Amino acid sequence: MTQKSPNIRRRRLGHVLRGLREEAGLTLDAAAKGAGVPRSTLGRMETAEARRLRHTDLDALADFYEVDPETRGGMHGLAREAKEPGWWSKYKDVFGERALPDWEAEAAAIRTFQPQLIPGLFQTPSYAAAIFRGGRATADENIERLVEARVNRQQILNRVHPPRMTAVIDEAALHRLVGGREVMKEQLEHLGHLAVRHNIDVQVLPYTAGEHLGMEGAFTILEFPEPRDTPITFVETATTGLALETPEELDAYNVAFSNVQGVALSTSLSAKFIDDAVKALEKQT
């Protein structure tokens, strides 16, 4: 299966279609009527919400906008790639429709703030299993599947050109004994090893930092290598994941991340903080 992001391909196609319409000086109603494509269909295509991209609709729009053969071919190419499933598609029951791995697949930079847990991309299998178990009566086979999906997500950190990863982790996440002392010790040692990689920065946000702009919860900002692929902020809730894309939303979360990063410990002091946490657990075992 492909490692390309269908969501990003849909967004690129939407940008092309919206650009053609705006260049022609047309409203959505006028363009839909002129091309003979339902207004709702064109609207969903432009906003990357359309899951079915019909060749007949694309040809009708290409004819109407009188595009050159190269542009027409590019439109169809994006539509084809938007239909190719990534590895995460077989875990739709785990990740949902607008899956975070879909966006991570092509991210050039990932910035995440986590107030309660070690970030998913950094979690050991034992730590992840303990989270999924979470005191609930969950069947072992279901936990295994959830952990397998999470471990597969982490492969982006091992690719030839991995994303630049910056994680600000609240001190609480380092003290919470997820899975017990041995599991937590293994997790913190793993976090310490990741923190020295050339493409990963880990900063601990200590309790002494006081109030900050990340107190409302975890979030992840993803940036992409193509300028036309605008960044997104991904916020996970108890039931789903939200991909926020408006300039106002991005600005707000960029400010929030700058704030938590600014009051967090430096990477070197954070490495010592993590090492001290490991030593404290060693004394307790």
Rank of each mutant, 00 (worst) to 15 (best):
M1L: 06
Q3N: 14
Q3T: 13
K4H: 15
G14P: 08
G14Y: 12
H15M: 10
H15I: 13
L20Q: 07
L20S: 03
E22D: 09
E22N: 04
A24Q: 06
A30T: 09
A31E: 04
G34K: 02
G36K: 06
G43V: 09
E46Q: 12
A48Q: 03
A50Q: 13
R51D: 12
R52C: 07
L53K: 00
R54Y: 14
H55R: 15
H55M: 12
T56H: 08
A60Y: 09
D63A: 03
E66K: 14
P69F: 14
E70K: 05
T71L: 15
G73T: 10
G73E: 11
G73V: 11
G77K: 07
K83Q: 12
K83H: 08
G86N: 00
W88C: 01
K92F: 05
D102N: 11
D102Y: 06
E104R: 08
E106K: 05
E106L: 12
A107E: 04
Q114F: 09
P115V: 08
L117M: 15
I118E: 07
L121P: 10
F122E: 02
P125Q: 07
I131S: 02
G134H: 06
D140T: 11
L146S: 13
V147D: 04
V147A: 02
V151M: 15
R153V: 03
Q154W: 07
Q155S: 14
I156Q: 08
I156W: 12
L157F: 14
L157M: 14
R159P: 11
P163Q: 09
R164G: 06
R164L: 12
M165V: 15
M165R: 00
A167E: 01
I169P: 06
E171P: 01
E171Q: 08
E171M: 05
R176F: 07
G179P: 05
R181L: 15
E186C: 09
L188T: 02
H190G: 11
G192Y: 02
H193V: 13
H193F: 12
H193K: 14
H198C: 06
N199A: 12
I200L: 04
I200Q: 00
V202S: 00
Q203Y: 01
L205I: 03
T208L: 11
M215G: 13
M215P: 06
F219A: 08
I221F: 00
E223I: 13
E223M: 14
D229W: 12
T233P: 09
F234L: 10
V235K: 00
E236Y: 05
A238E: 10
T240H: 13
L242N: 10
L242T: 03
L244F: 09
L244P: 04
E248G: 01
E249W: 02
A252Q: 02
N254I: 08
V255D: 09
S258M: 10
Q261P: 02
L265C: 07
S266R: 00
S266Q: 03
S268D: 15
S270C: 02
F273L: 11
D275Y: 05
V278N: 00
V278F: 01
K279D: 14
K279C: 04
A280D: 13
E282K: 10
K283E: 15
Q284E: 15
